[in-house]
C-alpha cells in the first residue's frame, strides 16, 4: 500500500516535470525540470529494486550530462522567444498526432489482454540481495559481447566527434604557447608619463 502511494506521488511529479521540460520558456528552467524528472525516475527504479541503475542514473545523467547541458545552455545565448510563431503554425497537426498517440497509449494500457502471460509477477528479494553484484555477474559473463560492442561504440563516438569538430580553418584564434612564453616585458608594457590631473 505504502509503495503504491509512493509510486503514484512520484509518477505524478515525474509527469509534471516532463511536461515542464517541454513547456518551460526558459531553457535553464527546462534543464532543471529535466533533472527533476531524472531524479524522480531514479527513485521509481529504487522502488523496483533496481538500486544500481538508480544510482547510475543520478550519477551519470544528473551529475555529468545535465551539468554539461546547463553549462552549454548558459553559455549559448539562446533566443527564448524564438520559435513561438512556428508553435502555433504546427499546433493543429502536432495536436492531431498527440491525440492519436494518446489513443494508442490508452489502447495499450487498458487493453488488459495485453497482460503478458509469459511474465510471472516478480517476487521481492531479501534485504541482503545485491543488485549490483548480480548485474556485474551477468554483464561480464553472459552479455560480455554486447558490453564490448558498447565500448566500441563509445570509441567510435569519440573518433566521430573529433573528426567533425577539430579542424584547422583560416582565421581560427588559437594559443601559440611558445610565443606566449617567449614574450618580453617590453613587447607588452609601455610606461607612459602623465601629468597629474587637477580637477
Amino acid at each position: 500500500m505504502l509503495a503504491l502511494i509512493y509510486f503514484y506521488t512520484l509518477a505524478f511529479v515525474l509527469v509534471v516535470a516532463a511536461v515542464g521540460v517541454v513547456t518551460a520558456r526558459n531553457p535553464v528552467h527546462a534543464a532543471l525540470f529535466l533533472i527533476l524528472s531524472f531524479v524522480t525516475s531514479a527513485i521509481l527504479w529504487l522502488l523496483l529494486e533496481a538500486e544500481f541503475l538508480a544510482m547510475v542514473l543520478v550519477l551519470v545523467y544528473v551529475g555529468a550530462v545535465m551539468v554539461l547541458f546547463l553549462f552549454v545552455v548558459m553559455m549559448l545565448d539562446v533566443n527564448v522567444e524564438g520559435g513561438r510563431g512556428r508553435f502555433t503554425r504546427y499546433a493543429p497537426f502536432g495536436g492531431l498526432i498527440a491525440a492519436i498517440m494518446f489513443m494508442e497509449l490508452g489502447f495499450v494500457v487498458w487493453w488488459r489482454n495485453l497482460g503478458l502471460p509469459v511474465m510471472e509477477t516478480p517476487v521481492p528479494h531479501d534485504a541482503d540481495y545485491s543488485n549490483t553484484k548480480e548485474l556485474g555477474a551477468v554483464l561480464y559473463t553472459e552479455h560480455v559481447y554486447a558490453f564490448e560492442l558498447a565500448a566500441f561504440i563509445l570509441l567510435l563516438a569519440i573518433v566521430a566527434a573529433i573528426v567533425l569538430t577539430m579542424r584547422r580553418r583560416p582565421g581560427l584564434k588559437t594559443q601559440v604557447v611558445s610565443e606566449q612564453v617567449k614574450i618580453r616585458r617590453e613587447d607588452r608594457v609601455r610606461i607612459v608619463k602623465m601629468e597629474a590631473e587637477k580637477d
Binding site: 554486447a146 566500441f152 561504440i153
Partner: peptide, 13 residues
C-alpha cells in the same frame, strides 16, 4: 540486443 548495437555502430559511423 547485439543486432541493435551493431545497427547503432554502423549508423553512427
Amino acid at each position: 540486443m547485439t543486432m541493435y548495437l551493431g545497427l547503432e555502430m554502423m549508423s553512427l559511423a
